[in-house]
Computed example of a mutant assay.
Amino acid sequence: MQRIFEFLFRFRAFFLFLLLEAIAVWLIVSNNGTQGALFFNSSNRIAGNIFETRSSIREYFSLNQVNSDLANQNAALLNKLEDYERLFVNTDSLRPELMLIDSMTLANYEFLSAKVINNSVRRAQNILTLNKGKNAGIETGMGVFNEQGIVGRVKDVSDKFSTVISILHTESLVSSVLQSSNVFGTTRWDGVNPDEASLLYVPRHVTVTVGDTVVTSGYNSVYPEGLKIGVVKSVERGTEATFYDIKINLLTNFSSLSYVYLVKNKNLPEIDSLQQVSGVINEQ
């Protein structure tokens, strides 16, 4: 302990200089808009590069699992491709209006991919960082999902990186529907278990069973209809007389996120503008 004090006393002038320099930088950043913006942009860029390097190191040691997952996904996609080929070979069995609706739905969205380079699941407001930004076409408000289910919504975007509000965020609301009965509700995380969430506002006069699949409703400007969210775990009579208290198991494993897909609604600016005029609160 004595040697530590001797060391600090010997270099006291140097440490005082560092302290004064730090205070000077803080004053400049705090009181000058231009310098402050440059400082924080540089900090975000450096943090993004650090996160990307750390993610690359982690990914190197899990390549076997990643390759296995990719092989399984490719097999599933090949099976779906065969199903589509069998379906469209006999076009007489398809109603023209259904084909028109499908093509219109696809035309409303664009899809991109990105890698998760930073993620959290232990906080009440969890945020992800992706390795792509404006230069790759990513924009604020885009929905994020993977092969398991939905992940979140893009919050902020820089040139090379973007941040995503995870659905593991207590202020995140997702417009949802029970697949078996087409009954609408809202999925919200309660901030406790990263594997579970609540399905709100489902009326008690409908039938809800354990095992029902919960998917996105399409009644929003973020996600297309039918993306998976979770599976009903429990159904109880809630404290409110009109709604159930429903818990669902989230299908997305947020602890092992690697690659994700981003979906952009081409009509988002027009929808948001109209809803703002009408005073509509838009869920994810």
Rank of each mutant, 00 (worst) to 15 (best):
N126Y: 04
N126H: 06
N126I: 00
I127A: 00
L128Q: 04
T129K: 13
T129S: 13
L130Y: 06
N131P: 07
K132D: 02
G133F: 02
K134E: 15
N135I: 08
A136R: 05
G137M: 03
G137P: 01
E139N: 14
E139Y: 08
G141C: 06
M142I: 08
M142N: 12
V144G: 07
F145E: 01
F145I: 06
F145M: 08
N146A: 01
E147W: 12
Q148P: 11
G149L: 00
I150F: 01
I150W: 03
G152S: 00
R153S: 03
V154R: 03
K155A: 10
K155R: 13
D156Q: 11
K160P: 02
K160E: 12
F161K: 07
S162M: 10
T163P: 02
V164W: 05
I165F: 14
I165W: 15
S166R: 00
S166Q: 06
I167E: 03
L168H: 06
H169I: 00
H169C: 10
T170H: 04
T170M: 13
E171H: 11
E171T: 10
E171A: 08
L173K: 14
V174F: 09
V174D: 06
S175Y: 01
S176L: 06
V177R: 12
S180Y: 04
S180K: 13
S181M: 07
N182C: 05
N182Y: 11
G185R: 00
T186W: 11
T186D: 09
T186V: 15
T187Q: 12
R188G: 05
D190T: 04
G191W: 13
N193Q: 04
N193P: 09
N193H: 10
D195H: 09
E196P: 06
A197M: 09
S198W: 13
L200K: 10
Y201M: 11
